[in-house]
């Protein structure tokens, strides 16, 4: 059995960041494995650990060379090998349509021919929340979005999944395999990489493919979404902010709370 897990190195911005034109300067950026993907990696590795048969877990990412540091973390957590897609054409693109990202991942998935694909629900930076389902459709696979529990029945060729809907309601659904499941945070407890895992990760295979390697025309990344503006949202705060020492602000809060009826016997 083969499990493909899609991962992304995401950027986060530091407090007090600035925007210059259509970008945030490097000094304000922090890089990390996308939180949702961390849960997807954990789910994939647990499948390999729990099953009797051989399971290969392959991570696929679209990202520049610096993202290898993050991809190695997935390898250190138990992913067997990784594929990284990158190209000069991608370095020039400011924003990728999620269906474009899905096309790149699909080209890798077609070669890998996995039985199951796990993706994070969304990326913490651009937050499209659409790549996994687009990938499934391009691969002509089944899918389920926003999964917070699943049970594989490979014999029956299906997965029983629990989808987290709004308002504390969960949907129980059966999906036929192969399928893409988009994984919600909280589905498991992602492990920390062990020192041994980090050492082993350095020796694991990490293959880089250009668009040409995948048989894709570089024009594929020249899609119809273009970033045209970037700004900090204007604060709509009408809050009364209390300043001073912890003691002083606590005293102000006490007044507000007592006025609202807190502490009345």
């Amino acid at each position: 059995m083969k499990v493909l897990v899609t991962v992304k190195e995401v950027t986060d911005v530091a407090d007090d960041f600035e925007i210059e034109g259509l970008a945030i300067p490097e000094t304000y950026l922090e890089y990390d494995l996308n939180e949702w993907d961390d849960y997807a990696v954990e789910a994939a590795v647990r499948i390999a650990e729990d099953r009797e048969d051989d399971v290969e877990v392959v991570a696929v990412t679209v990202g520049p060379e610096r993202s290898e540091e993050t991809i190695r973390m997935a390898l250190a957590k138990g992913v067997d090998r990784a594929v990284r897609v990158w190209d000069d054409a991608l370095a020039d693109a400011d924003l990728l349509d999620p269906t474009t990202t899905a096309r790149l991942l699909a080209a890798v998935a077609e070669r890998e021919d996995p039985d199951l694909v796990l993706s994070g629900v969304q990326a913490a930076d651009d937050g499209f929340g659409a790549t996994g389902v687009a990938l499934a459709d391009l691969l002509d696979m089944g899918w389920a979005a926003v999964v917070n529990d699943f049970d594989l029945d490979a014999g029956e060729g299906e997965a029983a999944v629990r989808r987290e809907l709004e308002g504390g309601v969960e949907e129980l659904t059966t999906v036929s395999l192969p399928a893409v499941l988009t994984i919600q945070t909280g589905i498991n407890e992602p492990r920390y990489a062990s020192l041994r895992g980090i050492r082993q990760a350095q020796r694991k295979e990490l293959t880089v493919h250009s668009l040409a390697d995948l048989g894709l025309d570089p024009a594929v990344v020249d899609d119809d979404l273009t970033l045209s503006g970037m700004a900090k949202p204007e604060s709509e705060s009408a809050a009364t902010l209390f300043e001073g020492s912890a003691g002083e602000t606590a005293a102000e809060l006490e007044t507000v709370l007592r006025d609202a009826g807190v502490g009345a016997e």
Binding site: P98, A102, V133
Partner: peptide, 24 residues
């Protein structure tokens, strides 16, 4: 809709129609 169910089919509509997709 950018609801949990909306995100469960909208990407497939975009890929099938071969049109750009902007969510949320």
């Amino acid at each position: 809709p950018n609801s949990v169910n909306g995100l469960d089919y909208a990407p497939a509509v975009a890929t099938r129609l071969s049109v750009p997709l902007a969510t949320d």
